[in-house]
Structures are given as structure tokens and as C-alpha cells.
Write a protein that binds this DNA or RNA. Structure first.
Length: 564
RNA sequence: UGGGGCGUCGUCAAGCGGUAAGACACAGGUUUUUGGUGCCUGCAUUCGGAGGUUCGAAUCCUCCCGCCCCAGCCA
């Protein structure tokens, strides 16, 4: 069942939207928006918001805008705009011609500000940043009014105009809303609306040297665009009274409804932009698209599909409770998607040579292998079989423990789509005792993997032909952190303490079946019995074969081993 | 000690006065040329706690407890 067939999501926000439509609020129309600040890369938490906003629009016959909240030129960059657009598109969402920028509305915001000044609802404050903080009071004590709060409308108008003209250096004045310095909600204690920033903006250049704060830009942007439901995360709940206050005082025709939901947390990773920046900047990971990161580009490079991510976002639900979703659910969604789509292929990650003593030298057979047992339409392929093969080191034990039913001395197993083989000998390095190769015999009657006499074997192993297989590099990824909640650091430690030193294992001597010779970057395969692997979008080029492990297959044997 | 939220299975999450959905995880079984997949079974006499209202409460009322967010000229 695809996510489309599962029907509209049911969550408290969908319920609100649905009720609004029934009541014919907003003439029954729905318009949402995804409003990222272009100061970093999108991560799986943003995907939740994207799926919610675009999904609501889809489910209720509305539209969803992509709007960049670019009101702080000191932090925002074009490269982030590009990556965000690419990621949203890759996730499968289309904003059509509705690409907006808060900076498109700077002129309007300025007029709004002037309007509020004239109305006596805004004033220029000339306190220093430190003084403003001090005057604001504390959580339990009310603030004090600024000595500049009573400036005349004329003086405020004059000062604000001169702020705009660039007469004053950064930090000398701000425009503030005149609300209530005694409010229990600190956001209502005369919040700053504009600050002076002599900085070049990535879109407006040097046109402005005053920039609106989030609170004086977001709601108005929503109202200008005609947004009906403005969905954001819980930490903005305290801002809602201010969101409403500005729109009311500005007497705007459209008054979107702000609704808050809990942001996504995932076990064994971190979602905070600040911490992600540190991981990248301090070199704990390669870059923003490091496959260990929960960034959209990292997940993509890891081999996650848009379908799996969308399915995940649909399953986790939307609510107001702080929660941490099990990473295992994300992995489950990927396995489920890939199980039905990924072509199967054989790859040996840690090769152990096998010589079939009774197989004719120089003989090569092309054996039929099913491409995907879950999808008959995927057809089959030929895989070369020869006297010398590689199997996985983990598939042999000289002294097998109980419940290990793979290859061992004297034991017979099946080579997938190949023959039954029996281990007859071990060649070791005399000095180190290291196993160099296995001597085996094969049963010619079992070609394809079936024994005419009906005898059974307990294991089927994957393999590749030694001479035909292709060398490859395979990167094995696991959790970036050793703790479920790395953000909750103990005394004297921070989250980097819990970085998993084994989150990346690079295997360079891997052997792939020859059909993988022209694997395209980003193509995903199931390496039988091992997991799903994705050709690296950057490094799997120019004849070099480089694969990233997206996720392992569920593995009963590892569990048995751990219990023992 | 101010303001705003939230507390239903290990983790998410339905439920909205009529007697606790579902998913992941976990545990068994079964099928199987992937110890994969599929299929079957088990997994909250109880909804943070205590009172109360009611024939009946996770749902309504009261009090208590716990957790999260807010003192950027960040978003």
C-alpha cells in the first residue's frame, strides 16, 4: 500500500482544518506554507513539517507555499536556499509558482511599522542591548518601561526614518512595539520589531540597513500571502499572542490561525541546527550530506528514498507531546520500501576464498538469479560461477558454535542459485594460523540450488566468482551516537562525547558480482543477506565502485549470537 | 515564585461519557534457495496520582505530582 492509498492523515491539526472547512471559514480554502530560514540544511525534522504542510494542502484541496524566512542577513546564504529547494523537491513536493521570500515584503513591513508608530503602538528605543535586557525584567518579575517609551509620534517617525536612511550605527536604536512591560509573557514586553544591521542581504543587497525581527515578519508574511493555517513548532506557542497582536493592530484583512505541534526527535541522533553545524565544522562528519547525519541530503546519500521518509512522517503522527521516535521506525520504513523495489545482487564484503576441487579448471557457467523475489516483473539475470569463489568470512566457522548452521568443516551448504558445496579442508597461514582459503567439493547434480534427491541444507550462502567479481569499497554506517539521547549530556560532557567511534567502517576489499559494473550513482540494491546499499552519489563514478550501507537486513543470527 | 504547554504499552499514537485502535520494538510459531520477506500468535483489567460527579470516566470537576518552552537587537 502506498502512502497515497492510506488516505488523509488524521491528527489534531487535520481535524482543525477539516472543521474550518465544514464551517466554511476562509471560504473553505486551505493555504499552508513551509517557512525555512536559509541558514542551514534541512533535516528529518523539517521533513515532518514539509509533509505536514504540503500534505494538508494536498488532502484538503489547497496549496502550500515555500517561503524563505530571510530576515537576518548576517546568517543567511544563497547556498542554503539552493539546498533547501533541492531537498523539498527531492522529497517529492511542488510549490509550483509559489516561491516567496519574507524579504519580498520588506517595503510593506516598513509601511506597517510606520502605521503602528502613527497609531502610537510602536516607538524607537535608544537603550543599549544590555539595558533592554535589564529593563525586560525576569521570568518572575515584571519589566520596566524604557525612558524612551514616551517619545512623540513625530520624533519616532523621524528617528525611524533616519534609522532606515543609515544615519545610525548598529545597535544604537531599535523599533519596539508598545504593549505591556508587565506581561507574564515576555514576548509581549515591548518586543523589538526592527534592528539596525548594516549588512548586505543575499537578495536585497544594500537596500536596507534595518531588518524586521521574526515576530514582525512572520505573521505579516502569512497574512500577505493569505495563509489560512500557519503551522509551527511548540516553542512558538508563546509567540502566538504577539502574532495575533500585530495582525490585529495592523488591521490586516487576513488573519491566519497559528497552530503549534511538537518537533521531531529521533533516538541516536541530534536535530538541533547548532549541534549539526558543530558536527560539520569540527570534522566529526565529512559534510552536511554525510550519510550518518539526519539531514535530508545525508539521508539521501545514505540511500533513503523520498517514499520511505514520507511514509515515516505519516506514521509518527502529529501531536503536542514532546516525543522521541525510535530510529528503528525510520529504518523499518526504508526496509519496507526497498524490500519491494531494490534489485537483489550478490556482494561479498569480507571475502574468504573457496576452491571447488572437483570443479573443472577454466569452466565458467552462467547461472540464473532472480532479481527480486518480491517483484516477478523484475526478471532474472545471469551470474558467472567458476572453480574459485569468494564467500563471506562470517559464513564459515572452523569450530561452529551451536545454532550456527552455515559452512564448517565437513558441512554442506547451498550457494545461492549455484550448487551445494561441502567443506573438505582449510588452508591456513602456518605462521599466523589465519585461514587463507577453503577447499570444498560441489555436487554437480544440485545446479541451481536444488538437490534431486530432496536432501536439505540448513544454510544458503551468497558468493561471487573470484575471477569475475569486481573490487569495490563499501562504507558501513551505524548510529552516529552511542546514546539514545546524546543531547542530554552529563556534567562536564557534551554531546560530542557520545559520538560512536564505529559509526563508519570502510571496507576496501569487497567483491561484487559483475552485473554491478555500471551501477549508477544513487542506485540502490539489496546485497543479499546483508542489507540495502546505495551507490555513492559523489564517489561511485569513473569506474570506481563505492557503496554506502543504507540499512542492514533484519538479522536473527546476530540476535542469537548476542544472547549467547 | 510569572506566563505558555504536555502527561494513554519500552517508543510513537488513536480515543472526545458507554466499558483501551494501530504501528515500531520485543517474544514465540510457520513458510522460505536471503537466519530476509510473508503469515499467525502474544504483548496496557488500565490511561501521571488522589479525591469527586455519574448507572457508567482515559474522556467532566477539584487538588496534587512530573516533564518541556520563554528573560536574542536569532528564527
Amino acid at each position: 500500500m502506498t502512502e497515497q492509498e492510506k488516505g488523509p492523515a488524521s491528527n489534531f491539526i487535520a481535524a482543525i482544518v477539516s472543521a474550518d472547512i465544514r464551517a466554511n471559514k476562509n471560504d473553505g480554502k486551505v493555504m499552508t506554507r513551509f517557512p525555512p530560514e536559509p541558514n542551514g540544511y534541512l533535516h528529518i525534522g523539517h521533513a515532518k513539517s514539509i509533509c505536514l504542510n504540503f500534505g494538508l494542502a494536498q488532502d484538503f484541496n489547497g496549496v502550500c507555499n515555500l517561503r524563505f524566512d530571510d530576515t537576518n542577513p548576517t546568517k543567511e546564504e544563497q547556498q542554503y536556499i539552493d539546498s533547501i529547494k533541492e531537498d523539498v523537491r527531492w522529497l517529492g513536493f511542488d510549490w509550483r509558482d509559489r516561491l516567496y521570500f519574507a524579504s519580498d515584503y520588506f517595503e510593506k513591513f516598513y509601511e506597517f511599522a510606520v502605521y503602528l508608530i502613527k497609531k502610537g503602538k510602536a516607538y524607537v528605543d535608544s537603550l543599549s542591548a544590555d539595558e533592554i535586557r535589564e529593563y525586560r525584567g525576569t521570568l518572575t518579575r515584571p519589566g520596566r518601561e524604557s525612558t524612551y517609551r514616551q517619545r512623540s509620534v513625530e520624533e519616532n517617525l523621524d528617528l525611524f526614518e533616519r534609522m532606515k536612511q543609515g544615519e545610525f550605527p548598529d545597535g544604537t536604536h531599535v523599533l519596539r512595539a508598545k504593549i505591556n512591560m508587565a506581561s507574564g509573557n515576555l514576548n509581549m514586553r515591548d518586543p523589538v520589531m526592527y534592528r539596525i544591521l548594516h549588512a548586505s542581504h543575499h537578495r536585497t543587497g544594500n537596500t536596507w540597513c534595518i531588518y524586521p525581527m521574526y515576530d514582525f515578519a512572520h505573521g505579516q508574511s502569512d497574512a500577505i500571502e493569505g495563509i489560512t493555517h500557519s503551522i509551527c513548532t511548540l516553542e512558538f506557542e508563546d509567540h502566538r499572542p504577539l502574532y495575533d497582536w500585530f495582525i490585529d493592530e495592523l488591521e490586516l484583512a487576513c488573519h491566519p490561525q497559528q497552530i503549534e505541534f511538537a518537533r521531531l526527535n529521533l533516538t541516536y541522533t541530534i536535530m538541533s541546527k547548532r549541534k549539526l553545524v558543530r558536527l560539520v565544522a569540527e570534522g566529526h562528519v565529512q559534510d552536511w550530506d554525510d550519510p550518518r547525519l539526519p539531514t535530508i541530503s545525508g539521508l539521501r546519500r545514505r540511500g533513503f528514498t523520498p517514499e520511505a521518509i514520507r511514509d515515516f512522517c505519516g506514521r509518527i503522527g502529529v501531536a503536542k507531546k514532546d516525543s522521541t521516535v525510535d530510529m528503528a521506525l525510520l529504518e523499518h520504513c526504508l526496509r519496507e520500501d526497498l524490500n519491494k523495489r531494490a534489485p537483489r545482487v550478490m556482494a561479498v564484503l569480507k571475502p574468504l576464498k573457496v576452491v571447488l576441487e572437483n570443479y573443472p579448471e577454466g569452466q565458467v557457467e552462467e547461472l540464473d538469479a532472480v532479481n527480486n523475489p518480491e517483484d516477478p516483473a523484475a526478471g532474472s539475470r545471469k551470474v558467472p560461477f567458476a572453480r574459485e569463489l569468494y564467500i563471506e568470512q562470517d559464513d564459515f566457522m572452523e569450530e561452529p558454535v551451536k545454532k550456527f548452521f552455515r559452512l564448517a568443516p565437513g558441512r554442506e551448504v547451498r550457494l545461492r542459485y549455484g550448487y551445494f558445496i561441502t567443506c573438505t579442508g582449510i588452508k591456513k597461514d602456518d605462521a599466523t594460523g589465519e585461514i587463507l582459503e577453503l577447499r570444498c567439493t560441489y555436487d554437480p547434480a544440485t545446479r541451481g540450488g536444488n538437490a534431486p534427491d530432496g536432501r536439505k541444507v540448513k544454510a544458503t550462502l551468497h558468493w561471487v566468482s573470484a575471477q569475475h567479481s569486481l573490487p569495490a569499497e563499501v562504507r558501513l554506517y551505524s548510529h552516529l551516537f552511542t546514546r539514545e539521547n546524546p543531547a542530554a549530556a552529563e556534567e562536564g560532557e557534551d554531546f560530542t562525547t557520545y559520538i560512536n567511534p564505529e559509526s563508519l567502517e570502510i571496507l576496501s576489499g569487497c567483491r561484487l558480482e559483475p552485473n554491478l559494473a555500471d551501477a549508477r550513482p544513487e542506485s540502490i540494491y539489496q546485497f543479499e543477506r546483508l542489507g540495502y546499499f546505495c551507490a555513492d552519489r559523489h564517489d561511485c563514478t569513473g569506474g570506481r565502485l563505492v557503496f554506502n550501507r543504507s540499512v542492514t537486513l533484519r538479522d536473527a543470527w546476530t540476535k542469537i549470537k548476542k544472547k549467547a
